[in-house]
């Protein structure tokens, strides 16, 4: 069972407090939406959960193990943060195959299935640098889910996608949830966020100001979950 706990996480970068005493819990098999305007701290919160940045105060734990103390990064995590970034000189499949080769968790067939699942052709020899924005985004999503991670973090996954792409993302997220993954999602489209999420954390100026439970119609306002 996967469980993420943020305990009074504060992150200061120079004099700016980008996260302010964020406390929340997340469980497997659920989709958590992060809602908020630009600069509200959604991406920073995601970076903290991934382990890319360390809280100035407080702690992030995954299954009871604290990031940065007991482990460097969560053992099983896939993510797409901001813009997808791959190596321009390789094709989509080559890029994913190379990344998968590090841990050796995803087999060739699995990688190809993932690429197909996002609407791309794994046999396409086109170099990544020649991909359109939408194709890059799709490949980024494929990279996030190819190893069937326990935690999936997607920052604006519908960026640059057309309608069919958005539907594809929705289907993928539902499948990930059904598989038992813990999904953290941020999206500017409130409609999509509400449709997909089981719970939504609304953020403002680095604080979680509202916690909305959608699937059991429970709503807590004004602070931590």
């Amino acid at each position: 069972m996967v469980r993420i706990e943020l305990d009074k996480v504060t992150k200061r970068i120079r004099k700016n407090t980008v996260l302010h005493e964020v406390t929340l819990k997340m469980h497997e098999g659920r989709i958590y939406g992060l809602q908020g305007v630009n600069g509200s701290g959604k991406t920073m919160l995601m970076r903290t959960v991934i382990g890319l940045i360390r809280p100035t105060e407080g702690s992030v734990s995954v299954n009871g193990r604290i990031l940065g103390r007991d482990m460097e990064f969560p053992e099983s995590i896939g993510f797409l943060l901001e813009n997808p970034a791959f190596l321009g000189q390789y094709s989509g499949y080559e890029n994913l195959n190379m990344l998968a080769g590090i841990k050796g968790r995803a087999l060739t067939g699995q990688i190809k299935d993932c690429i197909r699942a996002v609407g791309l052709d794994p046999e396409d020899k086109k170099k990544y640098r020649k991909y359109s924005l939408g194709m890059k985004q799709r490949l980024g999503i494929a990279a996030a889910i190819m190893e069937e991670p326990d935690i999936v973090v997607l920052d604006e996954p519908t960026n640059a996608l057309d309608e069919s792409g958005v539907r594809l993302v929705q289907d993928i997220l539902r499948r990930e949830k059904a598989r038992g993954a813990l999904v953290i999602l941020s999206c500017h489209d409130i409609g999509i966020l509400r449709e997909l999420s089981d719970e939504i954390f609304r953020m403002e100026a680095g604080r979680v100001v509202e916690h909305i439970c959608l699937n059991d119609e429970r709503q807590e306002e004004g602070g931590d979950a």
Partner: peptide, 19 residues
């Protein structure tokens, strides 16, 4: 290049910073 493009994020989480 990898720092600028953000590729480093994916690579370090997969492999660990030391590796």
């Amino acid at each position: 290049g990898e720092k600028r493009s953000g590729y480093i994020r994916t690579a370090v989480v997969q492999a660990g910073k030391k590796a």
